[in-house]
Design a protein around this nucleic acid. Structure first.
Length: 273
DNA sequence: AGACCCACCCGAACGC
DNA sequence: TGCGTTCGGGTGGGTC
């Protein structure tokens, strides 16, 4: 499932493929793909040129001549680029045709992904109340310490809360907590300054490493299934319940915390409260 | 207001 | 073997 690093990889790849191209047609096969956008509004992209592609949290931003369209891949959404006209594969919900004959298909088995057309991406994210970017200059241990003061819920849940920090999903939340030896149930507002500094450093380090790997693994977008990039990363916690901890050999455990699973080492990640 | 839970989907994995 | 059931993922919206 694409989290920040996977989305960044998609951005990097798409930038080389479709920036500068003019949209000449849009076909929509699944209406609910649109988020607070009518088919008519989607149509307004026709004739516009994609000027820039960027990322905010797990959102992809396609800045076009007049409007922008924003996509969220959720679990299995993917963009597939074809240099020329191509029959839509199963689970393809939208096709953008460009003036040079190439196409960008949006494909999503789960139908959870969403796209929408907006006049300003900044306003869109402001309205959403999206949290701080891990790669923004303002991101620091002190910043996290200040933010966490408002969150009484478990740190695992807080890391997943996109209003606090943008871009972290279940996988990297588990990995970061393992790295910092923090028990997932620890209330966020009970973390020490020191722990927040470690968390901030760990988030940046682990996400960076994942982006590096994603970037090196994924060459052609066709074969990208971006998850490929993810599995190039050695995971220490996520998906390893019942297996031996890479640090202490104890069995990792899995626990449900506000509806989400957390995998952690009960020996390395002790509760301190 | 804040914490929780479910709906949205589908296919893989599991149970009978 | 074949069927039915459960589960998991991110997010928004609903409920208490």
């Amino acid at each position: 499932m694409p989290e920040l690093p996977e989305v960044q990889t998609v951005v990097d790849t798409l930038q080389q493929l479709v920036v500068g191209k003019q949209i000449t047609s849009i076909a929509l096969y699944y209406e609910r793909l649109l988020e607070s956008t009518s088919q008519k509004e989607l149509e307004t992209l026709t004739g516009q040129t994609i000027q820039e592609i960027s990322r905010r949290g797990k959102y992809l931003i396609f800045q076009c001549s007049a409007d922008c369209f924003i996509a969220h891949l959720r679990m299995e959404g993917k963009f597939i680029y074809y240099p020329s006209n191509h029959r839509p594969a199963i689970h393809t919900h939208a096709v953008f045709g460009f003036s040079d004959g190439s196409e960008l298909h949006f494909n999503d088995t789960r139908k959870f992904g969403r796209i929408g057309v907006y006049s300003s991406s900044a306003l869109y994210f402001e309205a959403k109340g999206l949290g701080i970017e891990p790669f923004s200059p303002d991101f620091s241990g002190e910043e996290l310490f200040q933010r966490f003061a408002r969150y009484h819920k478990p740190i695992k849940t807080t890391l997943l809360d996109q209003h606090c920090i943008a871009g972290i999903g279940n996988i990297y939340a588990d990995e970061v907590l393992f790295d910092c030896r923090i028990h997932p149930l620890t209330p966020a507002n009970q973390l020490s300054r020191q722990q927040c500094h470690e968390l901030a450093a760990s988030i940046v380090a682990i996400l960076s490493r994942a982006i590096e790997r994603g970037g090196t693994t994924i060459r052609s977008f066709e074969s990208s299934h971006h998850v490929n990039g993810l599995f190039q990363i050695e995971l220490n916690a996520y998906g390893r319940a019942g297996l031996a901890c890479h640090r202490c050999q104890h069995k990792l455990e899995r626990m449900k915390i506000s509806g989400r699973y957390a995998t952690y080492c009960p020996h390395c990640q002790k509760r301190r409260d």
